[in-house]
């Protein structure tokens, strides 16, 4: 198994390497190939010693929307209901196996009773956010290198460098990005990078009343997330797109897209 994975990673490296060499030969040498791991943050925080992910336990989410609300407060996301770094969706599958999904105002003000209550076969809430993909399509398409994956595995946007072409918004399969109406640059969840680098939890995790969200190290440390990955069956959103999300869901229904 380990060998197979290694082989796959190796093959991918070769494929990616060849592709970028071909493309690079068009535009000449670039400094990006220098992969120096110099410290850019405060000396107290060492990005190379972390690799973050988030677990979302569907069967614990009560759809209160506190996460989406806290996210907007913590990150100054415009309050208008067109811009979300995280939101909650409600799935109602009725007895005809028809799927009804809604997310009024991103779930920030909770949910009204569903219209189809009599026929509910099963129903649940699904919190959504940027999946901080290990193989992020948004980073792949950004023409200028304004969105990137950090050493600790978080996908960020450089607000002072983004040209606002919105190719990344088109490339994100999860609808996790939007164009900030004032900054005119792409914007998205940062895992509350300003909090986690200080040892705090992301705001959505901090306020979740049922611990439906579990934040932590994704690589072999004893942490709540690690335990979740050990004890539960883990699914990710749209695995067929090979984006390799680092937001891991438990009890994820097959209807969720």
């Amino acid at each position: 198994m380990g060998d197979k994975l290694k082989r796959r990673a190796f093959v991918r490296k070769i494929v990616e390497g060849t592709a970028s060499v071909v493309m690079l030969s068009v535009c000449g040498p670039m400094r990006s190939l220098v992969g120096a791991s110099e410290e850019a943050e405060a000396p107290a925080y060492d990005a190379t010693k972390h690799y973050y992910g988030m677990g979302v336990q569907i069967d614990k989410c009560i759809g209160c929307g506190r996460c989406a609300d806290a996210c907007k407060s913590e990150n100054n996301v415009p309050r208008e209901p067109f811009y979300f770094r995280t939101w909650v969706e409600r799935y109602v599958i009725d007895n005809e196996r028809e799927v009804h999904v809604d997310s009024p105002g991103g779930g920030i003000h909770g949910f009204p009773p569903p219209a189809t209550e009599e026929d509910v076969l099963r129903s649940f809430f699904v919190p959504k956010l940027c999946n901080h993909c290990d193989h992020p399509p948004c980073v792949q398409v950004c023409p200028v290198g304004a969105t990137f994956k950090t050493q600790d595995g978080v996908v960020l946007v450089d607000q002072d460098y983004c040209v606002g072409c919105r190719y990344c918004i088109q490339a994100c399969p999860y609808g996790a990005r939007y164009l900030h109406p004032e900054k005119h640059t792409a914007d998205k969840c940062t895992f509350c990078y300003h909090r986690i680098t200080k040892g705090m939890l992301p705001a959505c995790v901090e306020v979740c009343p049922t611990q439906a969200r579990v934040f932590g190290e994704i690589k072999g440390r004893s942490s709540p997330l690690h335990r979740l990955m050990k004890m539960e069956e883990i699914q990710v959103l749209k695995p067929e797109l090979n984006t390799e999300p680092k937001v891991l869901y438990t009890k994820l229904d097959g209807e969720v897209r």
Partner: peptide
């Protein structure tokens, strides 16, 4: 700073 992997940059 064109991104070698981006179709748009190329």
């Amino acid at each position: 700073t064109p991104n070698g992997n981006s179709a748009m940059a190329m």
